[in-house]
Nucleic acid binder design. Structure first.
Lengths: 245, 245
DNA sequence: CTGATATATATGTCTATACTTATTTTAAGG
DNA sequence: CCTTAAAATAAGTATAGACATATATATCAG
């Protein structure tokens, strides 16, 4: 009843979480039903309450359980579950695929922000930020296109960095950690400029990612990324195989 | 130094996490640098090591810290951070926007799966599954289009459910909890059929979401969702404001 | 019956302590 | 010098105990 998957002994809390998950998936404990309280589960699994608590917190974070003081723990009625994806550094992504990375800055100037960008950043319209447009290439073929606005007030040292050599993507990752980020995915038909820079035809469906990041000084950057046609962006949910914990 | 944001006293572990995050964002502790060990931080913050451990685990899960036994804790070199988004129930999403929800099943039959679907599900080509195509409407206008394959072997009771009345999306959420899910976003130009069902023109860029879910009996369902033109899908990262914990 | 108040209870959080385990560092042996 | 073994160390995990806090339920006054 402990370590079936690998030969390794799993932590007790994880075994408990797995078993509870199993009972939910196998409909032994159904949606909305109350499950035994921590004290009872602690007895059943021969563990301390703190251990059971940790296991159930994990499941609550996953959205599988709803927990409330005094009211107990219930299987979530509609498991609004959260999927995760990670934002890789473009160069690493390209190189990991065994291709040669390069990038080209198409335009870079200090200019007043249009209304749409101002709204997204929460800054007054007309404020002057660094506007940067660049193309990332994989083996010489366009890989993605970025149209970015940078806020020097939130990223000290930004003025010095000339993005001809080091790309903005990478400079930001290494020099401007953020506290909060917002994303959105959408689809757009390539306009004339998109088509030219991505070397595709006008009207081609493009996957568009908007991303904005903030730190405690304010908005750092907002970017519109247009991916090469056919590119897809993966995410997943469930046991996290590798990495930490 | 405790509760600045709200008047409420925040848990100690969260204060510690916030403070460490602040030090990273303000570059007091830089990328790749080793930070004090749990015991030292416990002294600094006047907390038990377990509390510090919990705070740092959170940051490690966020991808902000790299932790290794004996080697200590370092600020992540390239913070491959994870963004989360949630998959809402279509009907609720529509109704929350104050619109009337309806849906229509376009086709439903038991048929052998094509190679591409077989690959995605990990099932042999030609296996017979339920194939379902439906349109979701908001205030009578097409909202999204789904093309779904359902595996009755992994979802007992599925055969009985006729999806004319109850939509598949909702039936699955309530009756077939899953253990693992995979997603991908992409963009496609609407083909003739997409255009007709979404009442748009052929060639229109559409945001496409592929999603596949599994439980311990195997793959449950895989679906291709085509959103109405202009629709975007949001995600975010950072302190999670509401809900659990 | 209604509304205010008290009580009970399940989860939330923290602590001190202990032991485990991966990994680095050091020491020993060839 | 290289290889191997031992020691040291920092995180990983578990535990019993304690107190905090939200909230469901019971109790009581009107």
């Amino acid at each position: 009843m402990s370590d079936k998957q690998t030969g390794r002994t799993m932590p007790k809390a994880q075994n408990i979480a797995d078993e509870v998950r199993r009972r939910i998936v196998e409909l032994k404990w159904r949606q909305g039903e109350r499950i035994p309280d921590e004290a009872d589960l602690a007895v059943e699994f021969d563990a301390a309450r703190a251990t059971v608590n940790k296991a159930l917190q994990v499941l609550a974070d996953e959205g599988l359980l709803d927990r409330k003081r005094r009211a107990g723990t219930r299987v979530a009625i509609n498991p609004v579950r959260k999927a995760t994806f990670s934002i890789p550094i473009v160069r690493e992504q390209v190189e990991e695929a065994g291709m040669a990375y390069s990038h080209r800055v198409v335009a870079q100037r200090f200019s007043p922000i249009p209304a749409q960008i101002a709204a997204r950043l929460g800054l007054p319209e007309g404020e002057r930020l660094v506007h940067l447009r660049a193309v990332h290439y994989a083996d010489g073929r366009p890989y993605q296109l970025e149209d970015r606005w940078l806020n020097p007030r939130a990223a000290p040292g930004l003025q010095q960095a000339g993005f001809r050599d080091l790309n903005a993507n990478e400079w930001l990752v290494r020099n401007a950690p953020y506290l909060r980020a917002e994303f959105s995915f959408s689809a757009e038909n390539a306009d004339r400029r998109d088509a030219r820079l991505l070397q595709t035809r006008q009207g081609q469906a493009l996957l568009i990612l908007h991303r904005t990041t903030w730190n405690d000084l304010g908005p750092i950057t907002t970017v519109r990324v247009a991916f090469q046609p056919g590119h897809c962006f993966g995410a997943h949910e469930g046991r996290d195989q590798g990495s930490n914990t």
